[in-house]
Amino acid sequence: MTTSDLADALGGDRHMTRITTFYPRRGRVSGRHEDALTRLWPAYGVDIARPYPPLDTAALFGRQAPLVLEIGSGMGDATVAMAAADPGRDYLAVEVFPPGLGNLLAVVEERGLANVRVAQGDALHLLRHMLAPDSLDAVHVYFPDPWPKARHHKRRLIQPDNVALLRSRLAVGGVLHCATDWADYAGQMAEVLDAADGLANLHDGFAPRPAHRPVTKFEQRGIAAGRQIFDLLYRRTA
């Protein structure tokens, strides 16, 4: 992947002055996924790209409803299950992996889900430039890139500055829900979230897996490999 390609994957920010928190994977886009991207993107898609216009979510979804932001939706399994079970809220799924975006769009169409939209690019750019403060009912960060090598820990999404940004976009009472199958990252998440101003842990330490978070194929692989799953739920208090 060239520098230009990477910049496009990050939402058009060609200066790339910020540390990225994900690895922009490449993968083959099947005919089904390509068709879904071509046909459905104009109605369901959001490009995270300069000049980063403010996102009018009421126009995007055709209604004014509580908004859930899912960062790193993968192939969209969790997004589809949660949105189908929660029609009163809208779901905006952010991903950089085109096959995942195409699959999610195809399933959204098949299931007739009116409360799902997808965005391609860096979620931090979306949060910083396109979403208004106090605009989110919930943020889901499920199984983000763990960056297991110590020299790469700075690339992890759950860092103090990023958490402050996430908190600012949540409405008071909104919930930040993180999940990971890397014990080291779970410990770091807990430390960062416990120290963050204006967030309160909804449990005494790690949370039991909430019923609303479906078990995906990705999570099943982690369990099969012997990794423990950690959930953390924090509510914005101020």
Rank of each mutant, 00 (worst) to 15 (best):
L92K: 03
R50S: 15
A81H: 11
D56T: 01
T38M: 09
A93F: 08
L60S: 15
R89S: 12
V96R: 05
D35W: 15
E34I: 02
Y23V: 15
F61D: 11
G62Y: 12
A65S: 12
A58I: 03
F61L: 09
Y91H: 11
R32H: 13
S73M: 10
A83M: 15
Y23D: 15
A36P: 07
G74L: 13
V68M: 09
G76C: 04
A81I: 12
P51K: 13
G74C: 06
A83N: 14
A65C: 09
E95A: 03
M82P: 02
P24V: 13
G45K: 09
W41F: 05
I71N: 00
A49W: 05
D47P: 00
L69H: 02
G62K: 09
I71D: 02
L60H: 02
Y23S: 11
F61M: 11
L40G: 03
R26N: 08
G88F: 14
V46K: 00
F22L: 14
H33M: 11
G27E: 06
W41P: 03
V94R: 03
A65R: 01
A93S: 15
G76W: 01
G72Y: 00
A85D: 15
A65Y: 00
Y91S: 08
L40E: 07
E34K: 15
M82K: 12
L67P: 06
G88H: 12
D35M: 03
A43V: 12
I48E: 02
L55G: 06
L55S: 11
P42N: 01
E34M: 09
G76V: 04
I71C: 05
E70Y: 11
V29S: 01
E70G: 06
V94K: 03
V68D: 12
S73K: 08
Y44I: 06
L60K: 07
E95I: 03
R39Y: 13
W41T: 09
F97L: 06
A58H: 10
P87T: 00
P87A: 01
P42L: 01
W41K: 09
D56F: 00
A65E: 01
L37K: 11
P54I: 11
A84E: 04
A84N: 10
Y23G: 13
V46F: 00
H33W: 08
R28G: 07
G88D: 12
D35Q: 11
S30E: 07
V46D: 01
V68Y: 06
Y23E: 08
A93H: 08
D77C: 01
S30A: 14
H33R: 06
T57D: 10
D56H: 04
V46L: 00
P24M: 10
I71Q: 03
